[in-house]
Structures are given as structure tokens and as C-alpha cells.
Design a protein around this nucleic acid. Structure first.
Lengths: 227, 227
DNA sequence: AATCGGGGTATGGTATACCAAAATCCGAAA
DNA sequence: TTTCGGATTTTGGTATACCATACCCCGATT
């Protein structure tokens, strides 16, 4: 088969990366598993070259770990590493929030409010993945409202990198009320251009994330230890 | 020629990236110029594959802009984009400084002091590129002393991305005294575990960077406009 | 003289062949 | 039975051939 990249394609290496990313985030490719070039290339119906490039993209995103002359493996970060990342995310989000209070246009504020409403609406009904995407969209909208392109980019990176841990942590226990309350608080702060309040809401939000993730790791510790 | 990568080598694609990076930062490859795969591969004596990978690395660092089906070009960011990046760098560095005051070991503090001394020593003598490398090493050492791996990584990214603008901005006018004074201030703050003072020193440092860069862009505006 | 179209060329994207290092497996020796 | 060493296999790294598309130049037409 000389390959038929006609189906789920899009600029190719990026498309491959997207497929692999989803497989990693959903757990089809579990943490610690090796990504052999030849196997995955054949499985996805492409040659090794674009697959290689896709793996590098994921490596940059922190979803896979690259080792010289060895198979890349799906990343399996420790609690400490994740908490480090959350700490940086917190700083980025607080910075975003402050700038957004200062720079957001009224239209952007309303867009953010609408996205928050979407999250609240779908929280009970829709599937978790969709809700998480909604949530991510709302938060990146805040980052965008800061009107700092570099900040948006880096913030998105961190959010994507933490997507999986947040997901598996959040589905163990739903602390929806607090999350949604934080969102409302953020919007109120944004409308009032009150960066103090914004910072407080964001801090609460991130504290919740730290609690969820920590509990998740502790539970996992109590359970199975893979060989 | 089947190539003999024995000279300036190191894991290859990273080595190629380092060479290209230096050429970009020194201006041998001016902003806006195209990086043709075949030409550069032959010039550097490697094949297109590793060169491609090197270019992607530089793209990730923001030194080159990648366009689908077009030659990558050496990036030429606007003043606004650079100022945005500096704003994020400032937040990251302030965060690092605070954590370093809290977490740095005495050995790390002395290492940082030694690196600062290197910068000061080479400032008059050595070539600008080396001094800048020294400077970068010192600042990344501070970030490392924060003991947050994610923060170190992202901080390094920003420093690398801003390397060139800082370089071309700094060589127009030497504000060495202030820079070196800031360094001394940082080290004093670190020794005293005084994160307030650390924040102040970093802010001064970054303000200087903003001034330099802004002046550089204004001068360039006054001069030639390339077609 | 200006503009539009077509064909040739330059260039990035992809596939594949080849190479070298790593891991693995198996047998022989203790 | 265990362990050590070497041959085989596996796998990532590199080079190169091939393909598709965008660019560019030139000529024909208005």
C-alpha cells in the first residue's frame, strides 16, 4: 500500500499528531507505552518521516518523552512534575486575568460569559470530553482577552499539556459547584475590571485543580502498581 | 559525499540547529531571508532530513517562521510582538526569582554568583556572542534554582526566543553598568532570601531590556526600509 | 504596451533504502 | 542452575529518490 492520506488528513504531520494526541489523552496509548516508528507509521498508513515529525511535535508538547536512540514513550509525569506545571499555569492565568481586566473589550467579556454559560449548561448532560473542551475554550478566551499573543500561546500549551491529568482527575469526583462558582466570579471580576477579585477567583480555581490532581495520584498510589 | 559529521557535531539535528541559530543570531542569515532546504543542507554538509528537523526546532523557538509548502524564513517580529514576549518573560523571571529565594541551595547561589562574575569578567574582553551565552547561563541558573522543571523549560524557551532582539538591541548602546549592577542586586537578594528585593532587581533588569529593544526598533524605523 | 495564460523550474513534502547502535535471545561454560 | 558473551533482531538516525505544488518567466493576444 503506497498510502492514501485522503481521509482524516490535514497538513499531515499536524494531523498525525492530532490523532496520536487524542489516543494519548483518551488512554488508548497508555502512559509509559513505547511509540515505535515503524509500527505506528504502518498502523496510521503513513511513512516514518511524517510520523517522526508528529512525534516531535508531541514531544514538544510534553505528551511523549524523547530519548536518543530509543523509542519515544508516552509521558507519565509524577505528581511533583504536574504540580510544577500547575504552578506555572497559575502564574500565567493570573497574569492573563489581570491583563484581561485591563484590556478586554466588552464584546470579549460577553463572549467569555457565553462560553462559561455553555460549560454550565453542558456540565450535567454532555460527555466529559466535550465539557472539557468547552472549559478550555472559555479559559483560552480569557487569555486571548489579555491581548498578548505570546501569553496566549504559552497558556494554551500548558492547558493542553495538563489536559489529560485534569481529565482523569476530574472524573473521579465532581466538584462542579465550585468550578462553576469560580467561573461566575471571574466574569463578575472581568465586568467590574477588578483584577484583585479576578486573581482570587483564579487562585481558587487552581487550588481546586491541585486538590483534584493530588487526590488522584494518592488514589492511584493505593491501587495497582504496573510492572 | 556521504558526509562525515565529525567536526562540530552533537546529536546532529540539535547541532545543526545550533549552527543555524548562531548564524541567525549574528545576522549572517538576516531576518526575512529564506532557508532553502537543499541549499543549506549542502552548505552544512548534511542531508535534508536532519536539516529539516533542525529548522523545525528553530521554528518552535520562534527564530524562523514556517509556512506550508514554502521556504521557511528567518523571523522578523514586530516591536509589539517582542514586547508581549518580554512581558511574559518578566512574569516568568519574577516567579523564578521568588521561588529561587525560597528553594535555592547555598551551592546554587554560589554557582549563580560565579556565573555572574564570568559575565562581568568577559564583558569587556570576549566577543558579544559569548558574553550573551554567559548571561543566558546565569539567568537560567536562577530559573533552575527555583526547582520547578516546567518553569525552567518555559523560561529557557523565552530567553532563547528573545536572544536575537536582545543581542542586536544591546550592541547599539552598552548599558553594561546597569546590567551588572542588577546582577549583583539579584545575587544579594538571593543570599538574603529577600524576594522583594529580587523582584525589584528583576523588574529593573527587564525595564532596561524594554528600553533597549524599543529604542532599537525606533532607530531601525528611522533607517532603511527593506523592499 | 499591458495583461493573461501556459509551461518549465525550483522547492517543500513524502516514501523508502541503508546504516549503526541497542536490546534481546540463546547457548556454552562454570 | 546461573551467568556471561556473542550473534541476531529490533529500532531509531540519516541519506536519497520521487512526487506535488507554488513560483516565475516568456510569449501570445488584445
Amino acid at each position: 500500500m503506497t498510502s492514501r492520506p485522503e481521509d482524516t488528513d490535514r497538513t499531515f504531520p499536524a494531523g498525525i499528531a492530532a490523532r496520536l494526541r487524542r489516543e494519548i489523552l483518551t488512554g488508548e496509548l497508555p502512559p509509559g507505552s513505547a511509540l515505535k516508528e515503524r509500527d505506528n507509521a504502518q498502523r496510521l498508513g503513513v511513512s516514518r518521516t511524517p510520523l517522526r515529525e508528529a512525534v516531535r511535535i508531541l514531544g514538544q508538547e510534553g505528551l511523549v518523552t524523547l530519548r536518543p536512540l530509543r523509542s519515544p514513550v508516552v509521558a507519565d509525569p509524577s505528581l511533583a512534575e504536574v504540580l510544577d506545571e500547575i504552578a506555572v499555569l497559575r502564574q500565567l492565568e493570573i497574569f492573563s486575568g489581570g491583563l484581561a481586566c485591563q484590556n478586554a473589550t466588552p464584546e470579549e467579556v460577553e463572549l467569555i460569559a457565553a462560553l462559561a454559560a455553555d460549560v454550565a449548561a453542558h456540565h450535567a448532560t454532555g460527555d466529559k470530553v466535550d465539557v472539557f473542551d468547552q472549559d478550555m475554550r472559555m479559559h483560552t478566551a480569557i487569555a486571548d482577552a489579555a491581548h498578548n499573543a505570546a501569553l496566549s500561546r504559552t497558556y494554551r500549551e500548558y492547558l493542553a499539556r495538563l489536559w489529560r491529568v485534569r481529565f482523569v482527575s476530574a472524573r473521579e469526583r465532581a466538584d462542579a459547584p465550585r468550578v462553576l462558582a469560580d467561573h461566575q466570579d471571574m466574569i463578575a471580576a472581568l465586568r467590574a475590571r477588578d483584577s484583585q477579585r479576578m486573581t482570587a477567583a483564579i487562585a481558587s480555581h487552581l487550588d481546586g485543580m491541585v486538590r483534584n490532581v493530588t487526590r488522584h495520584f494518592q488514589n492511584r498510589e493505593g491501587n495497582a502498581r504496573q510492572p
